[in-house]
Design a protein around this nucleic acid. Structure first.
Lengths: 214, 214
DNA sequence: CCACCAAATCCGTCTGACAGATTGACCCCG
DNA sequence: CGGGGTCAATCTGTCAGACGGATTTGGTGG
């Protein structure tokens, strides 16, 4: 039955479906009840069961990231650079002592994951989310949660696994994070903005380098 | 049945529901088929029908804007300032001639709406969307479409309807738009960034003034 | 106390029947 | 010839009874 009907079409009658599928009318009716519950059909007594216009299901935004297409990552990084540099600046101005502490904790967690040679995506995202929350504007946290931790991809760097694990690379990331966190903690909005921007532009450069190498 | 069951609970048996509601078992079963189709219950043969954990339905993002709460508008304007100033800078670098023309057309449309004393929200949004598209990074357009034209509220300025319609106000908005569009057309990324930022910070200031006056 | 078995309970399916609503065909009248 | 009315066929909605398979519960024996 999949794809064979258009809105406005009439399904085969229950009697015919019973014959076609060698099941009792009960089974057919319950299947139609299920379709009806999903808004896919409308039974009309005396007339038949009619196919309805499918209700548009909103695709979750920002989730069609093609990790095998490096430009897809770069595109999102550009958007993130815009949002997160502003978030860092606002966090520097607005963070509470507790939020400041949370950011530091998250930063330490990323460092710990690096030192343990463990995956860092989760800890990395948690740091970025903590910064967004420290803006005390829920829209920034909402944005971060929208893009989710899939936007902190390591898998896309498969081609350079050696580079990724190198101490130089990890030190670079860590230094960038430390500059952001320090500027926020010092309440220096412009330094925080600039540090976050450099961090994410750096990520863009690393990806663009991959693009050029492939 | 609404609200009376928690996940893991067992619904009354079909036989009991038949008695309770004075309907045949067929009716009960079809109702259960509907609930099952919606993922709300799980029938287990020999055991009963059990309530499932409701599947979280994702709320559309950025749609809970409370137009009567001015701070809600300001929050979104802060996020927009981040995204759209970056978009303006990228548009200045990346726009095609056709996109440049589109931006100009949209700018002219806003001006025409102002001159005709007509609502400008739709034209205003179209201008901002055209700029996002001229980044040639689909993420920026996606973001603009997410927030939609409800983010260009005039209704929230009800308390200052006279100010809104004043030639000085319209001239100010128009000048801000013109500065953005001109910088983009001239390919001056930093000027475009700065102009867009000033435009949206200006909107924030106008709203903050309202906050203070109320 | 634990294991096993039987009875009770419960869902899944089938069958036949009747009621109410709709549709299409045919006939009659203007 | 066209329009309206009537009737039969078709179709969904509901009811009732029956049987099969799966699960749960209770009782008994070791």
């Amino acid at each position: 039955m999949a794809g064979a009907f258009r809105p406005g079409d009439k399904l085969p009658s229950e009697a015919r479906l019973t014959e076609t599928h060698k099941v009792s009318r009960t089974v057919v009716r319950e299947a139609i009840a299920a379709l009806r519950a999903d808004g896919l059909v409308e039974p009309r007594r005396g007339a038949g069961v009619f196919v309805l216009e499918p209700v548009a299901t909103a695709a979750p935004p920002f989730q069609d990231i093609d990790h095998d297409r490096l430009s897809s990552i770069v595109e999102l990084l550009e958007l993130r650079a815009a949002v997160e540099s502003e978030a860092a600046a606002l966090a520097a101005v607005r963070r509470s002592p507790a939020q400041d502490e949370d950011i530091l904790d998250r930063h330490n967690a990323v460092q710990a994951a690096m030192a343990a040679d463990a995956p860092t995506a989760k800890a990395d995202f948690a740091l970025h989310l903590a910064i967004a929350k420290a803006t005390n504007n829920p829209r920034f946290a909402e944005f971060m949660e929208l893009i989710g931790e899939t936007a902190i991809p390591r898998a896309a760097l498969k081609a350079s696994a050696q580079d990724r694990a190198s101490p130089a690379y990890l030190d670079q990331i860590n230094a960038e994070h430390a500059a952001i966190v320090s500027a926020i903690s010092n309440g220096d909005a412009e330094a925080a903005r600039s540090a976050m921007r450099e961090h994410l532009l750096g990520s863009q450069r690393r990806y663009r380098t991959l693009l050029q190498a492939s």
